[in-house]
Design a protein around this nucleic acid. Structure first.
Lengths: 339, 339
DNA sequence: CCGCAGAATGCAAGCGCTTACACTCAGATC
DNA sequence: GATCTGAGTGTAAGCGCTTGCATTCTGCGG
């Protein structure tokens, strides 16, 4: 059994009859130690159940091997797939992930970023580009590398791995236009602190403006990513004098909620009302009709983000800037505009 | 601007004209420092942009304030809700969460546990009770407190926050029996390294045995938590000479996949085939028919697990053992057995 | 048999922080 | 006026590890 305190390098050294330097080398550069010595040390490590003290190592190495990620929420499927991939790739490269969630709130995010830095993270992954200048200054000052995900709309000197939120939504809107739709509505996450959501709405606006429609008449409902909230939004949209023929949702969860509510109101989707989603979450193909949506390569985004961060951690000067392609997935929920 | 290296306590002390001890006290026990001094120190901290070095602090305090969690996967919604709540509660108590995923693999999990310990976690959250004795020995030896989630089937001296997997599934099976079903089948996660899944199957067995049926005739398909895999399992089950009238799935994702495939084969659910789920994920109410399932209080489980871990970290001797109630959620996918 | 290169190991100086203990200095107490 | 008290501060000893440099040892060429 171990002593009352955890064994230290010195305990191992004493038991093996060598100096602490040699034990350290055994652990970090085994090839520099004679094999006979190495064996004795390894035995001592085993019998003592020794494992290096993390704090001491971090202190002298000036790095922890931990990177942090602050995401809006883990509760929905939106980020979990990407984060899973991110973590997996990080693990492959020998890094460990610390997670915090911001609840989509700017101050909370700033607090979490500081908390993670205080926990010694060597680098950060952040979602979206929108945050106080002070946060960026803090990160620069601490020389903490970071990469931004889910958008590419960032200053040129920052690393990012994302996709064109506006362009994707513009493409979907253009598709709807070609199906004869003229009265559009949008269900979006609250726009105030969410540049991705704003980008998506801007995409809708751009497309309908290009088609000669007035983008200012676009009805926008800002609700959280929840089934019921999206349903209520549908109720409000349909109560308008000129009800939309298509509702473009910022997310598949909202689309699913919207479809259900529309059906409950006796509308057929897409014959009476078309609905589109975003993200291509797993459940998008489960509902009836299946959701026409924008496929976002979450796994790829997570993987590339991890690679970009590891590069930055290694000191690569050139910040990685990756734009991933998105594609429209045509399923049943978007159809021709009703006559 | 900061110097080329990050500022240290000593830099702050020099600038404020005090000793490092006083600066340290300002940061950790401000009330023990005269207010005039404190102000000078705080100014120095601000102008230098000082933040304490994590490694040094961890070394001398002998704790990091980080706890780890190893979960099977983040990719599905199954764990994400619980982990979100876990993280949230931990954050409230001033702790930070490190995440690793095991891909439901025993060796990977053991590796991740060691990796997290090497990263200095003060405590651990683990899913399920099944792992090598060596892992538990290692944890004891390192004196790392841990709590186990998603099951209560653990030794009496271990902390756990979970629910009765077997009992829940037994209740659901009993309900199906009362609806006249006699030919059961199960779609489950691979049983080999998954005590929760085995518990659920055992629940089905227990119920049908109590009803006088032979539990050995129970057909079991072991497939991953994926829509398509569950669909293929349905194909196989329905090809049997005495096809089941009800398929009990170990998870809502599988149930959704099973329902879809059954419908594609022209069967009506539940008139021709009943299907049940587990977890009460958000999408369970989205599919048509909505899934009859077992509601698992994921958020509560995450929250309570965090509390239990914090207690253990504080040195409470008595390990918390929390059993959460589950309930059947009757929706459309389970109906009377066909005549 | 000497000298020397190169391999193996040890010595010891920190890394930046906390904290036990010692010290100083008012003001209160006798 | 001597003594005591306690608040405020400083001194310095580590915490456990890595690593530059010094030292020792080995085998080989001359």
């Amino acid at each position: 059994m171990a002593e009352s305190a955890l064994p230290t390098l010195e305990d191992v050294a004493r038991l093996a009859g060598v100096s602490t330097a040699t034990v350290s080398r055994c652990l970090n550069a085994p090839e520099r130690v004679a094999s006979a010595t190495r064996e004795r040390v390894e035995n001592a490590v085993d019998t003592l159940g020794y494992a290096p003290n993390f704090g001491a190592r971090a202190l002298v190495m000036r790095r922890t091997g931990i990177v942090g990620a602050v995401i809006p929420t883990l509760a929905s499927a939106i980020f979990s797939r990407g984060i899973q991939a991110f973590q997996h790739e990080l693990d492959r490269a020998g890094w460990t992930l610390v997670l915090a969630s911001s609840d989509s709130n700017r101050e909370t995010e700033a607090r979490q970023i500081r908390a993670l830095i205080a926990r010694g993270v060597d680098g950060l992954f952040l979602v979206g580009a929108e945050r106080d200048e002070a946060v960026y200054r803090f990160l620069m000052q601490r020389k903490t590398p970071f990469v931004i995900g889910w958008t590419t709309d960032v200053p040129a000197d920052q690393a990012c791995v994302g996709f064109d939120n506006a362009g994707a939504m513009e493409a979907m809107t253009t598709r709807a236009l070609s199906l004869g739709h003229r009265r559009f509505a949008v269900i979006s996450a609250p726009l105030a602190q969410n540049d991705r959501a704003r980008g998506r709405v801007a995409g809708v606006r751009a497309a309908i403006a290009r088609a000669g429609l007035d983008p200012d008449t676009l009805a926008i409902e800002e609700v959280p990513y929840e089934l019921g909230a999206a349903g209520d939004a549908v109720d409000r949209l349909l109560a308008a004098e000129a009800a939309p023929t298509v509702v473009m949702c910022g997310n598949d969860v909202q689309a699913a909620g919207a479809i259900r509510r529309a059906q409950q109101r006796g509308l057929r989707v897409p014959e009476d009302l078309s609905i589109t989603g975003f993200d291509n979450l797993e459940h998008a193909q489960l509902v009836d009709p299946a959701i026409t949506t924008v496929d976002v390569p979450h796994v790829q985004m997570g993987t590339r983000a991890a690679q970009a961060l590891v590069e930055a951690l290694r000191g690569d000067e050139q910040p990685a800037r990756v734009t991933l392609p998105v594609s429209l997935v045509m399923r049943g929920s978007l159809g021709p505009a009703p006559a």
